[in-house]
């Protein structure tokens, strides 16, 4: 339901009232922004030396290469691993054999319910702690693969189930075997429906790479931390880090929307049941 249905085309009095609200709203927002800016100014957050690192080529390179690029690499490795794990677990959950189905179900439920940070620190202590930067890097990646893989398993399962039943029936009718039906008929069609959900999961993975902070993994947060510890410019650094993350995520979301239009059309997005079985009617990954 679009917002337009909720209220009538306004008459003259309502138009006047809405104009009043608009003006009041603008004033309140403007005052709020002005106060925030004034507070920042008053505390010297606009002074040049606070922002100098972000105008110095050496630090810009550090932020973009050691920071953003490493973060993107981490997210990318995590997503690749998660897709593979997701296919395995998702198909496993649909298996005809209880021996495959139940373990897949248990693994998916476990890794979806355990906070990523607990997984990360566990893997870090078990594997990464004596391996320096690369140990921390892979601890983050492995934790993200397990978590996002479990989430994607649900996406794949829902995607395969969303393929019209006649497709599988027709495939069986021309004599295909179970594996062939899944590999040749169902999966290719399911992938098309799932691409937007997978890309939106990429946004989640990208945001979660920041949790590497807890195990001192390389990436944007670590570079940012080093910068604010050296210059004492916490506020500008947080703004710059947030801006970089937002830019990357907005770009990803835009790609997701494009891909959605291209492959799925304007149809409703894939419905995925949420953690622990509460059936979600909307894609709400955090």
């Amino acid at each position: 339901m679009s917002a337009g249905v909720l209220f009538d085309a306004p008459g003259p009095r309502t138009v006047a009232r809405h104009r009043l609200y608009s003006i009041l709203g603008s004033v309140v927002l403007a005052v709020f922004v002005a106060l925030a800016l004034w507070r920042l100014y008053e505390r010297g957050q606009f002074e040049f030396d606070k922002w100098e690192p972000f105008l110095t080529p050496r630090y810009i390179t550090a932020l973009l290469v050691d920071g953003l690029l490493t973060t993107l690499q981490m997210a990318f490795s995590a997503v690749i691993g998660a897709v593979v794990l997701g296919v395995v677990l998702g198909v496993g959950k649909l298996s005809d054999h209880a021996l495959v189905r139940w373990p897949s179900w248990a693994i998916v439920e476990f890794f979806r319910a355990v906070p990523v940070l607990l997984l990360m620190i566990f893997i870090f202590y078990a594997y990464g702690i004596d391996r320096g930067d690369s140990g921390a890097y892979w601890s983050v990646v492995i934790a993200l693969v397990l978590y996002n893989g479990a989430v994607l398993a649900e996406v794949f399962r829902a995607g395969i189930l969303a393929v019209p039943q006649g497709q599988a029936e027709a495939a069986y009718a021309i004599g295909m075997r179970k594996t062939q039906v899944t590999n040749i008929v169902l999966l290719p069609q399911a992938v098309k429906i799932m691409i937007p959900a997978i890309i939106s999961q990429c946004v989640v993975a990208l945001k979660d790479t920041s949790l590497g902070y807890a195990v001192a993994a390389p990436g944007l947060t670590k570079v940012g931390q080093a910068i604010y510890q050296q210059f004492g410019n916490q506020v500008p650094t947080v703004f710059v880090l947030a801006a970089l993350y937002i830019a990357a995520n907005v770009a990803l979301t835009m790609i997701a929307n494009k891909v959605q239009k291209r492959f799925v059309g304007e149809k409703k997005v894939l419905q995925v049941s949420q953690v622990g079985g509460a059936d979600g009617r909307d894609r709400m990954h955090i």
Partner: peptide, 28 residues
């Protein structure tokens, strides 16, 4: 979803900004 476009814009800006920022950065 309200009728005041300024507030609609402000709320959607808030959602876009916060949704795309990692929680860790918000907490920091």
């Amino acid at each position: 979803v309200g009728p005041v476009s300024v507030l609609r814009l402000a709320a959607s800006a808030y959602v876009t900004i916060v949704r795309n920022t990692p929680l860790l950065i918000v907490l920091i």
